[in-house]
């Protein structure tokens, strides 16, 4: 998860940089098209991560110093 967060921040930053470069207008057409393509891919990736609806809710258990996960039942929330 920490890895996902890291790459998300990196991608977001890269996307911002590309938008800046592209609007700066100092690139050749070839470079512009390349950056544009990369930017669109990054944006789609970021949106996909933010729109992902598969959440996991777990309980962290600890027994004799060892961690384990247990599914947390969200009865109350599900009733709503």
């Amino acid at each position: 998860m920490a890895k996902e967060k890291q790459s998300f921040e990196d991608e977001m930053r890269r996307l911002q940089k590309i938008v800046e470069e592209l609007s700066g207008g100092k690139l050749t057409l070839g470079e512009s098209l390349k950056k544009y393509e990369e930017g669109v891919k990054l944006a789609q990736g970021c949106l996909a991560v933010l729109n992902d609806a598969e959440r996991k809710v777990d309980l962290l258990m600890k027994k004799e110093g060892k961690f384990s996960l247990e599914k947390f039942e969200e009865e109350e929330a599900d009733k709503e």
């Binding site: 938008v19 592209l22 512009s32 544009y36 669109v40 944006a43 949106l47 933010l50």
Partner: peptide
Amino acid sequence: RNSLLSETESLRQQLKFSIAGIIGNL
């Protein structure tokens, strides 16, 4: 999350706008 969603969306729009401008100028 919501502000990131709208920021990403706006960045995507800016990308399209920029490339359209570049191609238009050419």
